[in-house]
Amino acid sequence: MSDAHESHHGNYWKIWAWLCALLVVSVAGPFLEIQAVTLITAFGIAVVKAYLVAVHFMHINVAKRYIVYLASTTLIFMLLFFAAVAPDVMQEDGSNWTKPAWIAEAQTPPTVHGGANPH
């Protein structure tokens, strides 16, 4: 479209191969059954994959700088939302209220593969 676009096509197959390799790692991670490893392989790799797609497929680094600011601003707003809402939502009781179902759930150990559990 414009001259800035001439040089930004990299080797897309290579990026794709990287993405697939990362996918294998993130699926394999939980088999070690160490929670920290699972979290890192699941979410750390998700961030890396998202970065690869955003930079190499969406060309966010070729686009104008304000696009990066725009995307990161919305992400920061979401972090803010999470930070301010989580203290309320994650509580089981607060001033003048309780969440009976949450307390009950915490007390009864769940059964894995237990089928449908309507409550």
């Binding site: 809402v85 309320d88 939502v89 409550h119």
Partner: peptide, 17 residues
């Protein structure tokens, strides 16, 4: 619905955000 695992305050946050 807090009696079934949800949270009404979540809506208030979503709404006022």
């Amino acid at each position: 619905d807090p009696s079934r695992g949800g949270d009404p305050i979540l809506w208030q946050h979503l709404f006022w955000f």
